[in-house]
Write a protein that binds this DNA or RNA. Sequence first.
DNA 1: CTGAAAGCGCTAACAC
DNA 2: GTGTTAGCGCTTTCAG
Lengths: 346, 346
Amino acid sequence: MIEDMKGEADMVTIKDVALRAGVNPSTVSRTLKDSSSISQTTKDKVRKAMKELGYVPNVAAQMLASGLTQSVGLVLPPLTSQERLSQPFFMEFITAINAAASKKSQTVSIATGESLEDLQHQVHLMHRQKRADGFIILYSEKEDPVKDYLLEHHLPFVVVGVAQDTSGAITYIDNDNRGMGRQAAEFLAEKGHQNILFVTDDLEGQVYSERYEGYSEAMAELNLPVYPSVVFDRHRAETLQDFMDRLTEKQATALVVIDDLSAVRIIQWLSFYQLRVPDDLSIISFNNSIYAKIIHPYLSSFDINIAELGRKSLEELLGLLEKPSKESKKILVPFHLKDRESVIRR
Amino acid sequence: MIEDMKGEADMVTIKDVALRAGVNPSTVSRTLKDSSSISQTTKDKVRKAMKELGYVPNVAAQMLASGLTQSVGLVLPPLTSQERLSQPFFMEFITAINAAASKKSQTVSIATGESLEDLQHQVHLMHRQKRADGFIILYSEKEDPVKDYLLEHHLPFVVVGVAQDTSGAITYIDNDNRGMGRQAAEFLAEKGHQNILFVTDDLEGQVYSERYEGYSEAMAELNLPVYPSVVFDRHRAETLQDFMDRLTEKQATALVVIDDLSAVRIIQWLSFYQLRVPDDLSIISFNNSIYAKIIHPYLSSFDINIAELGRKSLEELLGLLEKPSKESKKILVPFHLKDRESVIRR
DNA sequence: CTGAAAGCGCTAACAC
DNA sequence: GTGTTAGCGCTTTCAG
């Protein structure tokens, strides 16, 4: 598999290759970059020598000489709670981006911290120490020192999340949350549901807003009643009772729930009241995470295509690295509904 | 917060600092390493200049000159399933090790792959490209090309997981699985349980073996019946039925379950048979992950102290980096039982 | 199309 | 204690 040739041929340099191929080091360097100004014959010769010697470029030297690190910084959101960290999203994204990066011979360095200030500091260091050429921010907040810092220093970056600030010439990669909201409503309507409630744990989230908007639009178009969102937040006891009240008041037969984890908790909660999903109440949720497959009924949930999200963000960032753009850009990654057991025809 | 002084003082080098402090670049370099052969006064002078200029060392240059990368490679296990990736353990470990590393001004590079061969290749690259001085392997398998590669090339590394190969002068950092198994049994016994079953989803796992051993030992010492493990694997339908049979046959009142996720699934399964936890059956499980707090009853579960696991592995690796050791070493990280609602007195 | 040569920013002997 | 001086391995003008 890995060429190791005879024993410890450690630290083969460009010079060794040059010597063996009978060319100048600079020619080897150019071959490495597949420069168009090197003849095919020479390239072949050089590549052969590289292979024979098991040559691997020393990135430190490349960085120093070129000023490029060939690596991207991945900024995770502030890790407030264990719960946030436990969201499968992040690991999936990390592995996706890692895979994409290694295909482009880039590496990924991860910045984590407990606060936005922490993160800003990390990013500052990564930049100044030359550990990353550009950044991918894995969250989107209105007031974000990290974003400000990057903007101010003209460092290329993309944001994975809802576009907050379309003025700033920022590239956003996001799911089509509005589209999912629409489809959730349409899907349930098609199954004969009419009184459909939208449930979230937090009214502030941008992701929530977009999904709710999509739901409202679709409901209106279908001539079905559009209700305000109902909040289900296990940390606020009053919302739990209120949730039940709204359910009966509206005679809801289906719920659109902001994410799988909330859906699981809601199913639990409903069971205290002898309400069964999907028999008494259908539920559709978002993310198609492991939580969707943990509890019975398995959840019908929107797959948000994390791998594609990762691929696209890297692609966009690399694009920016090549030629910085002054334009704002918003990219939507397609989703698809994974229908399982939590929705039934009414 | 971050010193930026006047505008874009970008790329301040050691020379600029030297100039400003009126010393030689090498003196600056030594101050950076806090070398003992520089007088305190000069250090102060130099540090002042660094601060004023907002100097940040260029790691690429440091690497090239010193041959050290100041960064560690973190090797995740092959990502076979979404489920494996979704284990909160990995994210928690990543953040823990990141925090620990940044305190020691080290960075963490992550290697992921779909197979052990993939990973070996990644590790090879990381090494040859000089992206990591040493490695932390986040899994432990008997036949592991990654381990072999590292061993063969005399690269420092530590393994987080069960010691498989005590011959190889490898450092292992692990939880005290046997201790947890013991305590699980003792805890349940103390609560008046006698017929206690150990449940796992996989008889092959080393972690399982150790925990089961601990359980058996303790049970024997307590003069309680030691039963063979019972398998509950949702992918193998026959185990599910068998599981129920064993439960009634042994008249079990308590279960020790290999991890939180399995426990959640088991609770679900039991509810089909109108069996309630903890009223009909107490359950104690391992990992204290988010899954322990997702379902009612909240699970009594062993906290395996991931942060400490991360800290210790980094510490050990850095130790090896300073002076390679030819001795095998096994480090146990303490645990503690987080008692919640899934166990009651009988 | 290829070679020569000057660094990139820092470290590490070796002097003094 | 501090300065001098070679590089580390690679990129990149500039010649030819």
